[in-house]
Design a protein around this nucleic acid. Structure first.
Lengths: 158, 158
DNA sequence: TCTATGTATGTAATATCATAACACGTCAAG
DNA sequence: CTTGACGTGTTATGATATTACATACATAGA
């Protein structure tokens, strides 16, 4: 999967590609990418980071949208439901999905140096988890896998 | 690892064993198991569930300890540091560690039916995660793996 | 024994994260 | 042209967590 988050790259390629995919997906599914929702997605796409709902809200408010928490939470929840964003439990924050449409139950790598959040391919991780769970008779429905650590750049810098 | 959380068992065997181990570990390390800390551990050990800090606090207050959040958070943080409790990110809640002393970076299995939380052996899961991370040059320091699903009993009942 | 020091606890105040409930507007189907 | 579904705005409140400071308590060193 995509190592880009951790390296210099032309970020427009990321965000533009995701925006197009998002539009296509939502058109196909009939869900509506309203101005607030679109703007929230754009804001999340600005960086490979996780943003708190209140940070997003502040941005929205500054641009003339509503300035009460539900405005942000509703848009964020919508994006999460549509698979366009992920919630990072550990940070109480949200990040744009960089691979919308692709079926994926990602693992998140959170750099403690630069706060970058990347999605890692988690199929083997999930397989191992489901196997461990099955040994106890437990059926996994959803799982969150979040790792804290250092990205290549921050590791080198430290 | 221990499938007990998901089955009928003499729970005193769990909690007594853990309490003894906890005492031994802390005596050895020089850390102090003060009344508040001991009581919090006992409370967590009452069930194979996760408890919110404010639930713990309520219990403490009812027993004559302080009734402000830091009282609970400090004791809980202490137990987590000492490896005697775990924080479940997904639930904003805490659970007693059922295998203190054993080196382990567990995966948590959270039953959506009965709220039981079990620790599953996570060595293979972590290995898979570290491997996926290494492919991106990322070094994992700490990770949380939390699965929602159904335990054997609740699965059968549903 | 006394006192200085570090550690633990108690409390007030506040910060941060999240949701419930209701009002209003828009738009498309009937 | 009305109705109903959906989206947005707003008020209020709930739930989770931390900062800062005061007090007590244990214990090692004078």
């Amino acid at each position: 999967m995509d190592p880009q988050p951790f390296h210099d790259h032309d970020h427009h390629l990321c965000s533009d590609a995701v925006m197009s995919q998002a539009e296509a997906m939502l058109t196909a599914s009939g869900a509506r990418l309203t101005p607030v929702r679109r703007r929230v997605l754009e804001i999340l796409l600005e960086q490979h980071r996780a943003m708190g709902a209140y940070d997003v809200l502040q941005r929205l408010a500054a641009e003339g949208f509503g300035n009460q928490p539900p405005v942000a939470y509703r848009a964020l929840d919508f994006l999460v439901e549509q698979g366009l964003a992920h919630r990072i439990q550990r940070l109480n924050a949200f990040t744009a999905c960089m691979h919308p449409g692709e079926a994926h139950a990602p693992a998140f790598l959170i750099c403690q140096g630069c706060n970058t959040v990347a999605e890692a391919p988690a199929a083997p991780v999930r397989a191992a988890l489901e196997s461990a769970a099955a040994d106890l008779g437990f059926t996994v429905e959803r799982a969150s896998v979040e790792a804290l650590g250092l990205c290549p750049a921050c590791r080198e810098a430290s």
